[in-house]
């Protein structure tokens, strides 16, 4: 399936990646190549086949519902590009 410029624009927004107008066409071509490659999967008969959802047949373990780690505000904020008063700082989101 060929991807057009409008689709790239939509997917870029879904992925929250800005793609300049003049990059939409080449990007559409690259994505189309990859999807065309994946088209082979349509040949496979998958009737009655369950999708693989777990790599090893293993149930996830339960653990005690207790605090294991915490009180690490400074460590959590240490790599943030902008903080203020112990919080992550971002542009205004509420008018």
């Amino acid at each position: 399936m060929a991807v057009d410029k409008a689709t790239v624009r939509r997917v870029a927004h879904l992925a929250r990646i800005r793609v300049d107008e003049d990059h939409l066409a080449p990007m559409a071509q690259e994505l189309s190549r990859i999807l065309a490659f994946a088209e082979q999967l349509a040949e496979v008969n998958v009737d009655g086949v369950e999708p693989m959802t777990s790599v090893t047949p293993m149930a996830l373990r339960m653990r005690e519902d207790v605090v294991t780690e915490g009180d690490a505000r400074d460590a959590v904020l240490a790599n943030a590009p902008l903080t203020r008063g112990g919080f992550f700082a971002v542009p205004k989101v509420v008018e």
């Binding site: 999967l41 086949v49 693989m52």
Partner: peptide, 8 residues
Amino acid sequence: RAQKVRTL
């Protein structure tokens, strides 16, 4: 479909 192929 890819996940089903993965099962196969």
